[in-house]
Design a binder for these strands. Structure first.
Length: 274
DNA sequence: CCATATACCTGGCAGC
DNA sequence: TGCTGCCAGGTATATG
């Protein structure tokens, strides 16, 4: 089973265990093999602290504790499960946060994920990871006029501007291609050359594709399961992602693939204009 | 400061 | 079957 932790998948994961873990007391934190970054504190120090709530910022899950917080990232291959304690950890289970309400477990074969402790959201450790992040795409703060204005300042290809997450967070490799298709914009188009009406259209497309993915349970292109082990509905079908050579669902032209910043990009050469 | 490349790590898959 | 090479959802950091 494959997971695809872009914003919708992270949000669906959050929704699947946030209320169940809120109020729990930490019994122990066990770490497996090293993840992308060290925890940054002695795991034993967390014992007895209470989980207040779980928030999301971009693709990070922020676990607020009665004292301090944990920042958790799923990387490229991470997934969370929350359930009864006692299941033996597998080869790729690298975080076990045991609480009096159950076990939160991070399974992450590639180990690009991370769990990092910070005293609070404003300290240097947290700011290093969160400080540069752009606006939340599903929040009221994601303003079309401001987005259009910000795009004017960026000379890089729009696909890479979206992926960078400095203007707007949560748009990963898949949804970047999909949103640009919906907006009719070629991924290679320089952000600075996108007109206000097209920027507005892209703004709407980003919101639309992400909101629909969250509403449908997070999974779009491949298997995905939330922390309760439930699958998404698979209703969102990709228009362009991973469809190189296949006919565009709108105009039948063959979908093209190119590489931008070492990542695959897919687009319709007819529906998407430079 | 800006844009692009690199590094991290394992597993799945196509091709031979 | 087994090997090899390539590809994969992210993002801080290094380099030009």
């Amino acid at each position: 089973m494959r997971r695809m932790p872009e914003l919708p998948e992270v949000e669906v994961t959050r929704l699947s265990f946030a209320s169940a873990i809120a109020g729990a007391s930490i019994v122990a934190l066990r770490l497996g093999q090293p993840l992308r970054w060290p925890l940054g504190c002695d795991p034993g120090m967390l014992t007895g602290r209470q989980v207040l709530q779980v928030r999301r910022r971009g693709k990070y899950l922020l676990i607020d504790l009665s004292k301090g917080m944990l920042m958790l990232h799923l990387g490229m291959s991470g997934s969370l499960s929350f359930g009864p304690a006692g299941l033996a950890a597998g080869k790729h289970d690298h975080v076990d946060l045991l609480t009096d309400r159950g076990l939160l477990r991070l399974h992450d074969p590639r180990r690009f994920g991370a769990l990092v402790y910070a005293d609070n959201e404003n300290d240097a450790v947290a700011q290093k990871l969160l400080g540069h992040l752009g606006v939340e795409p599903l929040s009221d703060g994601f303003d079309p006029a401001l987005f259009a204005k910000d795009l004017k300042k960026k000379n890089a290809p729009i696909k890479q501007v979206l992926l960078a997450g400095e203007l707007v967070v949560g748009v990963g490799n898949i949804y970047a291609s999909e949103a640009l298709f919906l907006a009719g914009i070629r991924p290679t188009t320089r952000a600075s050359r996108i007109s206000k009406p097209r920027a507005f259209k892209l703004h709407g497309a980003i919101r639309d594709v992400l909101a629909r993915a969250v509403a449908q349970g997070g999974s779009t292109l491949r298997d995905f399961s939330n922390a309760q082990g439930q699958n998404g509905y698979f209703q969102l079908q990709a228009n362009v992602y991973d469809r190189a050579g296949q006919p565009c669902r709108v105009c039948n032209a063959p979908i093209k693939r190119l590489v931008q910043g070492q990542r695959s990009t897919f687009y319709c050469p007819v529906c998407q204009k430079p």
